[in-house]
Amino acid sequence: MAPALKLLVQRVALGLMLLFLVSALIFVGTQILPGDVAQSILGQSATPEALANLRQELGLNEPALTRYFDWLFNALQGDFGTALTNGQDIAHSVGNRLKNTLFLAFWAAVIAVPLAIFLGLLAVRFRDRWPDKLISTVTLASISIPEFLIGYLIMYFVAVKLRWFPSVAMINDGMSLGEKLSSIAMPVMVLTLVVLAHMMRMTRAAILNVMQSAYIETAELKGLNRFQVIYRHAFPNSIAPIVNVVMLNLAYLVVGVVVVEVVFVYPGMGQYLVDHVSKRDVPVVQACGLIFAAVYIGLNMVADVVSILTNPRLRHPK
């Protein structure tokens, strides 16, 4: 177990270091924008005295390094400060939004990941025959069309023509799970179509790569049928690359859904971020940036960990 454990510790440490660097980058990025928070708050009414007073009050005269570590330690304790625009506690409003975004991402993943892997296996099973070509064409088409267009197309047909679901995906805490699911059905559809192609094609490529191996021939010469060969012998050896692409797409489902959330007016992180970017609400932008980075790095770290754990050479050293 020793080499695997060492690698795991290294990966986790690397992930944390990366997150630390990203937090610094986010902080520096928002600092080098022209103007500062005091100016944003006061806007047109900024007199030199008022600016100086507010800066004093907000601690903006402190050195940048001190302010960075203050911000970081507070953020680590869950305190992101207050939004400039409405004075609300950021942690509280982000918490709600994040919950909604994760809810949407979760259901999209529950449908997209197994479907993508199943379609990938199917494409390998019928390689270069019509099912493979059909799957490849449809998924390629869906990834090529911009997601907002898919969104509006689905909205037009499913909500307007067929009237199956409401066109706006509003959810709130008072709704039952069924009501919530019905409400997010359309954005889930769009997200599934968007992430499906990438995962399915990588699954297909990873398994096909393994299918060249000599041990696949051994399996075929044992008299196993093609699906047994793929499932028992090829799939276990392609888990690492598949998990990698799945994690990348899960991260996308959380941090890349801005467009879809805006199209369906869904109260998630993406829409929240867009709103506050346009209002130059720096603390909110920083908080969202940090959370997105954490999700992204965290999921990729999980992918690395799974790769290490599925490698028999690392799991069972000589």
């Binding site: 000599a214 041990y215 051994t218 399996a219 075929e220 010469l221 008299g223 012998h233 276990p236 599925t310």
Partner: peptide, 19 residues
């Protein structure tokens, strides 16, 4: 295959599934 007739490959190192 695998019942009446079986096969021993040249490179056993490659012919066994590593997982």
């Amino acid at each position: 295959r695998g019942a009446e007739v079986t096969y021993v490959a040249q490179s056993a190192a490659a012919a066994f599934n590593p997982a």
